[in-house]
Structures are given as C-alpha cells and as structure tokens.
Design a protein around this nucleic acid. Structure first.
Lengths: 355, 355
DNA sequence: TGCCCTAAAGTTATCGATAACTACAACCAG
DNA sequence: CTGGTTGTAGTTATCGATAACTTTAGGGCA
C-alpha cells in the first residue's frame, strides 16, 4: 500500500503521523474532495462504484474527519456541554455517567465542567462553553443568575436544566419529583409510628423547597403540623453542607423539647451526621429516633445502622437528559420546553424500620 | 451603542444572537481583521491607541474567539481528553475533579469519557479523542492494548497515564506508589499483632500487582511467608469486583485453616464485603480479624466498624496530572517521559486497631 | 436527428481565524 | 537630499471541510 502522504505539499513535522485529509483520499483515487465529502455524508448523487472505492480507501487510511473544519462551515461542533456542581458527589457523578453513556456512539463529545457550587464559577464555565459553541448545554445549576441561561437561549443553544430549576425561567428540565421525595419519606416515618417528625432541610434550591413542601403536605394529610423548631437548616457554606452540618443540626434538634422521634434529612451525608449525633447522645436508631436520608448513596447497606433512603434514580435522570439532548440538537426549530420528572422510590433499611 | 451586526452580510436566522466575529469589530473600527487578531494575541506591532480601541470594543461586544477557526489554522484545539474506567468510582471521580480544577481558567476544555472498564470501549473513546485532535490525553486505562497508546504517540499528542501503567510502554505516568500501599497496609497489620495476614487482590493491573508485591515485601521483611491460599483473587467480571466479590472471597478465606487474622483488601468496596462476611461468620472486627482497605472512600467513619484504609491522595494525583498536562502542551519538542509517584498514607480506624 | 433530462461528477465561494509577507509613513543618519 | 530603518497596519494565502452551483456524458423520446 502506497504511503498516502507521498507527494503531499506539507511535510510532517518531526516524524509524527499527520491525520489523513479528504484531499489525500481524493488525489489518491483521482477524484475531487467534494466527492469524498459527499460519500461521507451519504449524498445520493454518487455512483455506487465510486462510493465503494472511496469508503474502502477511507477505511484503509483510517480517515477521521476534521471536526474543526466541519464545525467552521456547518456551525455544529458535535459537542455537548455539561455543568455540575460537584463531580465527586455520587448523585452528579451518576448523572454524568449516565449522560456520557446515553450519548456514546452518536459522534458527540461531552465537555464536563464543575462549578464547585460557586455561582460565579458556573457563570464562567457557561461562558467557556458558549465560546466553544457547544450544540446543547446540560446544567445542574449552583443557583446561577438566570442571566447566564438567557445568554444560552439567545444564542439559540438548547438548554436542559437538571435536578435544580428556577421559577422565573422556562426551560427544559429533567429531575426528580421532589415533592414526591418529601411525601415518600415522611409518609414512611408516619407509617413507622413517628409522632414528631423533624426535617433537616437543604439550601434555597428548588430541590430543597420541593422536599420541604412534600414533607409539609404529607404531615398535613395526616392532620399533623410540624413544629417550627423541628425544621432546621444546615449551614449554607462549604463543609457544613454535608455530614458535619447534619451533625450540628441534629444536636440542636435533640436538645429541643419535645424531642423529635423521626428525622427526614435532605440528603444522605446529612443523615450520616444525624445518625452520629444520635448515637453520641446515647439514643438508639430507630427505636428512639428514626432516620431517613435521600440519595441512596452507595454502601448504605454497610453502615453501623443501614440507612433508609429515598432513591432518586440519578441514572434515569441522566439517561432521560441524554435522550432529550440528542433530540433537541437534531431538530431545526426550538421546541416548547419539556419537563421530565422521575419518580423516586423508598429503600427501607434498618434506620427507620421500627416494626 | 450601535448594533454591531448592522449591515452584516449574513442575517441572523430567527432572532438568535450570532456570535461576534473579528470582522465585525474590524469594520466597526475601520481596521482589518488581522489587526484585531494581532491585538488579541498581544502582537507587538500594534499602536497603543489602536490596541486600546480594539480591546474596548471587544469587551463591549463580548467577543469570543471561534475555537474551530483557530484550531483549523493553528492545529491546537485547546482541548484535553480524559478517559477513566468509571466516573462513579470515587477515586476516579476525585481525580477527574482535581484535573478539572487544575486546568481551570487556562482556556482549556476537558472532554471526559468513560471506558466502563471495557478495553474495547476505551479504544473507541481514544479514537474519538484523536479525531477531535485533543492537545493532550490523560488515560486511566482499563487494560487497553498498548496499540491505542502508540497511535496517540504517533500523532505527536502528549500522553499521560494515570493510576495504571504498562510494563512495555514508556509514557508519562502519574499515580500512587502501589508497593508503598501494600507495605503500609501490611506493616500496620503486622504491627497490630496479626500473624496470618491474607490479601484479597485485584485484577491483573499494575496497581494490583504493585500492592501484592508490597504485601509480600512487608511480610518478608518480618520473616513471614504468606500462605498461597491466603492470597485470593476476586472475580474479574463486573459486579464481582466490588463488595460482593469481597464477600465471596472472604467467605472462602474464613473457611481455610489456619484462618487469617488480618486481611488487606485491594480496595474499600472489597473491604466492605469482607467485613460483612466476617460479621456473618459471627466473628469480631478487629479482635478476630482485622481489616484494612484501600482508597479511603468517603464516609468510612460512619460504617458499623470504621474502616482503616490506605489513602491514595487521588486529589494530588489529579493535580499533578493537570500540571504535567499543561506543561506538555506548551512545549514544542516531545520530552522524556516523566513518572510522578504520590506517597500513600494510612488512615487508621477501628477495623484494624487492636490495642 | 435534435432536444431535454438525469446521473455523476467537478468548480467555486465560504466558514473565522492566523501565518507570512508587503506597504507605507515618519524619522534618522550620512 | 537620499537610502535605510522603524513602527503600524494591510494583503493574500491557508487550514479542511461543505453549500450551492455548474459541467459533462449518456439516454430516452418525439
């Protein structure tokens, strides 16, 4: 087989392989580059004979189209942008994994960035993705200003919000039904005979508000009213958000009177902190205080007391988001924003099972 | 402020904002695009006056250079490719997070892909990244054929292997000192009075082999010889690799005679499975069997028995890998491959603390 | 036979930026 | 006053592909 780059005008620097271009294949077969291009795109006005020759040669030379050149003329980069608040968080890691799997083999590349829960960083990452001209953007927002999202829409780039939404922004949304999460957890605690159920709520996000709302609704449905002091917030900043925050919040809860006999925690790390505080206070789980978390993180089964948790099916969220993204990039006109809610499920373990 | 796109040849489709081009700024100021380009790149042959006017206008119009156009002519895509075996695995998630943080603000975008531990998928992902012409590739390999790596090098693209290496491939490597991991864990178990130490080893990777080697070396240094039946492998396929695999392997170990009184597990999920098997056998941890894991996964503190684990400092690995990547893309000539080993530390918790 | 149509290719302009060279003042030294 | 230098900005070709025409040969049909 002849060297495809023989006689090529530009000599390779050093000894490195220079990628094969359409021009190389064209000269090789005595055709024009346009013909090669047409074959690649499955154009109809190419003879069967020629088509086969071109495809064969492409294979032989392992031709890979130049994305930059293609993007420049077509305006499509075959690139998807994903912004999450934290790659280490199992929920977002799973969502990212599922999205990655969902778009695999479709020719798209996924640029994954993290805002580290900082709105300003999120804004910058979005700008970078805009500069990259990604074809579609998926964002699990760290409470960014809606301004950034408007810029995305103004550019005509499809936007999909994940997990967290905004009241004053109409956009595609894929997430869990957070009210259902709250109802599921609270109903379960009530069902287990808890009388005074507390809630450790999350920060000011749609997620936290939805779960709180579900919590309230479930109690109301049983003619129960939560005490104000039984709804506590964790610190909004940094480390306080996880287990340490849950620990502190629970210490406070346990000192209150009447003492709660069940706690619905915004997420699993908080629940872990809560459990530790309960143990430290010399109380038993679930006999004295039942605990329900949210997120169903891995290895919950291996804890000192296995943790009951609401599963958000992050995998499904990622899968649906990926499908939606693929459908959005392939349609010409912007379509009406869709909302896709995943139904949560309760995974009951020892931390809440009283009988 | 006048509309920058007034009189622009190409009308925006629909009502979407079309990104500003150099040409727009140039016409705006009565200059040529080349001048704009030179200002952007800090060329010296531009007058101070002009420079300021151009920069000001760029700001006003929020100019964002077109990466595709730039990549086409310069050959640099300002893109970094990362391939990991599993985004959900806390180790790789942390590495990815640290790499992402390490390259932030440098103008690069990170394309993160997962091989799901399948060599064939890894090969495909690498091909995709090659087609994208990424500037540098970081790979935590799922035991791919070295063939793929050769193709990367032939293209002249800098390659950095992470965590897992290959004997027959000389390439940049950033990872933990796996022999030290094995020594650290084993020394500790010996120190805690364990006499018959078992090892549940991982699959045929450099990582598993290194830890096994460290295990052997530490025992030998104390004139101990491991029994062959005390070194067991977990199933190589899918689910067996995590906690379930550890559970099965440990059941087998506990039936053997003499029964081991200490187990060094390849990773934390395996250790979790091991602990469960030990409990199920009615034995105590650490009195009857001490357990050491590896990875220091989150929430180890909250387990039924907190797990002693070797911390691999995945954050440092990612940080170093990012720095190395940035340095590689900015140098013209390929340089001699570097090896950067991070020193592991032991985090002692109850699962191994006998006195 | 002559006209038109179709199939199968090719020509040319273009995408947005940069590399490499050129143009043209103003200024200076001899 | 002239030739060369310096400082600034412009011209032109190019990167690799695609959009939108155009060309050409052959065939069918009246």
């Amino acid at each position: 087989m002849a060297n495809p780059r023989e006689g090529r005008e530009r000599q390779p620097k050093l000894l490195r392989d220079v990628p094969v271009r359409m021009k190389d294949i064209a000269r090789d077969l005595g055709l024009s580059t346009v013909t090669i291009s047409k074959v690649l795109r499955g154009h109809s006005d190419i003879g069967e004979e020629t088509r086969k020759r071109v495809l064969k040669r492409m294979q032989e030379l392992n031709y890979q189209p130049n994305f930059a050149a293609r993007a420049l003329i077509t305006g499509r980069t075959w690139t998807i942008g994903l912004v999450v608040p934290d790659l280490l968080h199992p929920f977002f890691a799973q969502v990212a994994k599922a999205i990655s799997a969902g778009v695999r083999g479709q020719g798209y590349s996924l640029i994954i960035t993290s805002s580290e829960e900082y709105p300003e960083l999120e804004r910058q990452e979005i700008e970078q993705l805009l500069a990259r001209r990604v074809d579609v953007m998926l964002i699990a927002s760290a409470q960014s200003t809606v301004e950034s999202f408007r810029r995305i829409e103004d550019r005509g780039i499809p936007l999909i919000l994940i997990d967290r939404r905004f009241v004053d922004l109409v956009a595609n949304f894929v997430g869990v039904d957070d009210e259902a999460v709250g109802v599921l957890a609270t109903d379960h605690l009530i069902d287990q005979g808890c009388q005074r159920i507390a809630h450790i709520r999350g920060p000011e996000t749609s997620t936290a508000l939805g779960r709180l709302e579900g919590f309230r609704r479930a109690l109301a449905a049983h003619r129960l009213t939560p005490l104000a002091k039984h709804i506590v917030s964790i610190g909004a900043s940094g480390d306080d958000r996880g287990a340490p925050g849950g620990y502190e919040a629970t210490k406070k809860l346990l000192k209150s009177s009447p003492r709660p006999d069940g706690i619905f925690c915004f997420n699993d790390p908080i629940a872990l902190g809560a459990m530790r505080a309960i143990f430290d206070a010399g109380l038993r789980i679930p006999e004295d205080v039942a605990v329900v978390g949210c997120g169903n993180l891995l290895y919950s089964d291996f804890l000192r007391v296995p943790l009951t948790s609401v599963d958000q099916d992050s995998s499904a969220i990622g899968k649906i988001a990926a499908e939606l993204a693929l459908s959005l990039v392939s349609q010409k006109k912007p379509s009406r924003p869709k909302t896709e809610l995943v139904t949560p499920t309760l995974v009951v373990r020892a931390s809440s099972l009283r009988h």
